[in-house]
Design a protein around this nucleic acid. Sequence first.
DNA 1: AGTATAATCCGAAACGTTTTGGGTGTCAAC
DNA 2: GTTGACACCCAAAACGTTTCGGATTATACT
Lengths: 339, 339
Amino acid sequence: MAATLKDIARQVGVSVTTVSRALAGYDDVAEGTKERIKAVASELGYSPNIVAQRLQKQRTDTLGFIMPTFGPRFSDPFFSEFIAGVGNEAASHEYDLLVSAHAPNSAGELKAYERAVRRGWVDGLIVVRTREDDTRIQLLCAHNFPFVAFGRTSDDLEFPYVDEDSETGMRLLVQHLIDLGHKRIGLIAAPSGLMFGRYRLQGYYDTMRDNNLPVQPEWVVEGDMTQRGGAEAVTPLLGINPRLTAIIGGNDLMAIGAINRIQQQGLQVGRDVAVGGFDDIPLAAYTSPPLTTIHQPIYEIGQRTCAMLIDVINGRAPTTPHSLLTPTLIIRESSGNPI
Amino acid sequence: MAATLKDIARQVGVSVTTVSRALAGYDDVAEGTKERIKAVASELGYSPNIVAQRLQKQRTDTLGFIMPTFGPRFSDPFFSEFIAGVGNEAASHEYDLLVSAHAPNSAGELKAYERAVRRGWVDGLIVVRTREDDTRIQLLCAHNFPFVAFGRTSDDLEFPYVDEDSETGMRLLVQHLIDLGHKRIGLIAAPSGLMFGRYRLQGYYDTMRDNNLPVQPEWVVEGDMTQRGGAEAVTPLLGINPRLTAIIGGNDLMAIGAINRIQQQGLQVGRDVAVGGFDDIPLAAYTSPPLTTIHQPIYEIGQRTCAMLIDVINGRAPTTPHSLLTPTLIIRESSGNPI
DNA sequence: AGTATAATCCGAAACGTTTTGGGTGTCAAC
DNA sequence: GTTGACACCCAAAACGTTTCGGATTATACT
């Protein structure tokens, strides 16, 4: 059924070599022959066998992306938007994108990375949500495998990455709340071990300290990055006496969960308790009240990460192996008026 | 750098054939030889070249998924959850998942499908958000290419699919609102051409008719499936006089956008206007007020679709080539109390 | 007539694997 | 001492493509 070069060669009466070269557009094939070959090729509905090409070219033109998802079910808009960015950029360079999902630090995840490092699976990998002491990155560096990360690590490994300056972002948000008159600000932090959570935490502590505002240990609780996690984490925060006047979600999803729980307790967000988020997912503008948050251009980050990876794969040293994006504060209603 | 069978063969002093068979566990290799081969293999860090295996086996063990996204930027939780379902199921059968994104009915989308139909790219495809007169499915059927769809079509083409009974789902929701005392119910419909939108619309009209409730044409407006679209579509709906007492979003994202806009107009959702959604995305439980909606088990649907596709690829006729899931109504607060 | 030049074409190897269809040698049974 | 069975091993082909290094022929120039 599927036509091969050999089929065309037989029918036209030339060698496989000539067919290959004619189709590839070399100029050492006579015009007439080229015509005939092309005619037969399209008549037979020929299209090259991609696997054979890959074997011969010794490259797969495929990028890999292993999503670090907590639990099999998840629904983090971060991933769909990031995939869109990476995928479209990849497509525009004629690369395919292979995706899979594994829980962070799980055995499955490690196996997936080991598989990826094998030759012939993908040409390069994209790593997101970097961790302190990140085994994925250690493995990749050790094997000298091409990859680009979204996020930095605490190791002093040298590798190309894109990252947002989360610390500055958090400073912006905390300062905004302080400027509004808040002094008792709680934080629902990302799970420990995640680098971006660490930077955000740092930004929080530093800004409080710079404003001479003490922080009680119980003002910071961990959440699992989901709405449910945000809702659950906010409960102890609301029990603190005297009450916190503002609560920050380590990401928008947790902030949304927090808003929900705060309202269930009969408090009004933006008046009784100010709430801030982080990420500016599309939904953030549509919560009630709309969420004050820090904007991250996830789609563009995906594009940029992908473009860098393609550079790395092709041996072009990226002009800027480390790019740090500047975040912006989006003020909406959840942070309320000055008190 | 990368070790091949030939390298191992040379070092051990046997033929490539023997190495291959030893590693594959055939029993026509002496125990001792097998041991030595395995030792050398692991010493050299050998792992088979996947592309070569694929060329020889004439199958890629890869599934394709082309997301029909409106605009390059999107953030529909449907896709991340669906990918997770498909991806995990695929992984458990040792299949890879190749994804890309294209706008529905675009030239890029068509090209992507044509590329997919070529041999050696993927073994099968997953199609979602089926459309009336769906060119993708027509192409796939014409080429006899293995695929499974999430959704039906209006053609009388025969192909395996999984679908939710959207019509019944919508009936459940509309009846719920009617039982609450609503008579003037608006609908933000999915863009025309989408099959699931058509079924939902049908369920809406039928239920209204069965309850002897007239429907004015201006009660139904189209939205683009995003929050923004939902917000924009709700504006004309709110201008209708006398006011509609309930509004249904064709999906949860649009319902959330609608809630936002309704509240901006100073109306209270659940008291002044009841709102219903469709999909039960994780966020639906965390809006304020929480959203009454129809539950779709997207993750499981992804799994099921993927499992069917793998059956099709391997020539196992699926036991049930057409499976229709029964939706359930999730009553939360956005639909309010009886009036 | 001899030789350089260009225009066409092709055989064979290579990419790394799996599989087919044997081959060789040993040992026991007759 | 032949036969058969068995254990072990391998050469070669195949998957479909690209590319290297010529080979062949015709044309043009001395």
